[in-house]
Design a protein around this nucleic acid. Sequence first.
DNA 1: CTAGGGTTAG
Length: 707
Amino acid sequence: MTSTVSTALDLRFTISLPSDSKKPSFLSSPLRLSTKRFTVFCKSPSEIAEPRQNPSLSDQLKPLSLTLLSDTKDQQPQPTLLSKPKSTWVNPSKPKRSVLSLQRQKRSSHSYNPQLRDLRLFAKKLNGCEPTEAAFSVALEEIPHPPTRENALLILNSLKPWQKTMLFFNWLKTQNLFPIETIFYNVAMKSLRFGRQFELIEELAQEMINNEVELDNITYSTIITCAKRCNLFDKAVEWFERMYKTGLMPDEVTYSAVLDVYAELGKVEEVLSLYERGRASGWKPDPIAFSVLGKMFGEAGDYDGIRYVLQEMKTLGVAPNLVVYNTLLEAMGKAGKPGLARALFEEMVAAGLTPDEKTLTALVKIYGKARWGRDALQLWERMRSNKWPMDFILYNTLLSMCADLGLEEEAERLFEDMKQSEQCSPDSWSYTAMLNIYGSAGKVDKAIELFEEMSESSVKLNVMGCTCLIQCLGRAKRIDDVVRVFGISIGRGIKPDDRLCGCLLSVVSFCEEDEDVDKVLSCLEKANAKLVAFVKLLRDEEANFDKIKQDLRMILNEAVVEARRPFCNCLIDICRNRNLHERAHELLYLGTLYGLYPGLHNKTEDEWSLNLRSLSVGAAYTAFEEWMGSLSKIMERQEALPEVFSAYTGSGTHKFSQGLASTFASHLEKLAAPFTQSEEKAGCFVATRDDLVSWVQSRVPPPAVGA
DNA sequence: CTAGGGTTAG
């Protein structure tokens, strides 16, 4: 078992596989080795102070990019990442400049402080007092030992939130007992970073500059990561630039913090250039740096990049730790490689690492997305038997996976486990997953029971749970319950979103009685009045096509992208149920016009096909009619026809999916259309030209004379 | 435990 797994992984290192990831790989990107300057590096220098003018990073990197580019001119276009970084570009007469210090900044060592207990207790008191200057001053008088440098540091380090830290720090400055050195600023900044107070951090940094207190790597990395946490990426880069200009070389901690800044900005080229430049300076990156790279490639869905990270670690003899594995697993999932994620996981276990909650969450998510039910359940068994750690996120991910795979019993067992457990009791996410499962399975009573249970407990219903429940009630045609649940939900503060509106709209399409339609529409009225007005407009025979077009366009524009096609599908279904076939055809036309049904119809010389996979039942019927209608016109014009006609409904991989295939099959049967279901491909209906032509002729009366 | 970098949910 273990050896097979590692072989599988080894193969990936040695064989150059073609890239099949959906997103373009940086390998194929022409930008990768380009001279593109780092525009963020070219900002005007910081206004804060005048640093000594050392060459900026962009200047330092220029020779690199130029040599790299000229180097590639001789090569074939695709440099392989699996080879070691080339060193041929180094010109021995011009020694390359280093971009980072290989020595990590040393921390000062602390000797044991015998007054530690007292001071901690005192810090706790300060933390607990009123957050006013007055209250703080009073509390300060109870200081148990004189605020020597060491004692002050210890207290400063124990204060939170940042307001308290600042009060103490400012008090300390007024005491004039000893010079306030770098470490004091660093400790204060750490607390400010926790409170995301970037402005204050910058103020402190300015104060350091003014007072000629040295800014060291710890100062810079704290400033940079605070900027990052506050999403002030420009600031992060600006401070990184600054340190070069003041003549300070980043060490690997600062350097990898900056790699992460660029990675979060999606600047893959810049990260790789910095990485390679660091490597060329003799840097042996540690697992944290690799984790940054791995995450970046995951975000880009770049499988080749992930392989590159694994290969680099192998080449440099860096063993992945748990976080690196977790990051790479997540990345494999994002790159759509469930099999390789599984192999990597086995490698990790074989290496003696114990997976944690994050590892397992990543893997469960991947198996769920890949619809690998067996793997997911086996993993769950292993989790239980090995007593691997569980937390509520993992539980909820397992529940969502069950919802995706239709594993009702397993979900119930998990849900019960959660109720038993102390730390992982079900929250609104767990309830939503269960409502999703019962809703999809059509277990109306169980779904309602959950809903009642939530009302009694302190778990709040969310909009998705509400949507699942209403969908379930709608399918069961329990219209009064739909209205009741909707009313209660609004009362509990649910803000209807476009999905919920789409769900109500689909309930309208299920309604058989006018009375029921009106009930549901009056719910929908509270969430989206324009949509209701449009439904009413559809019934109005006076309404002309342009009016329909204009209003539909407005409604679709105001809806989130993922709700637009469901809206259109439901509206078509409603028209068909109300015998408004003309309108249904108009809506399908408009939906196609607005790009909701891309690739609906495909023509090749040999085959014309209709792709119905994203259509509702009514929309699919409408599209089929449209297709046959245009076929008959083409026949009238005696134009060339292909041998084969096919219609795809999809086979519905989702266990609970309603299955357009079977509905469509009986529809075709009723029409006596000569389509037969393909044996090789589920959900594919095929007809030959001759059969179809004679069927169309038999249905369509010859055109009236003069028409 | 006493100054800095990386990882979990529709």
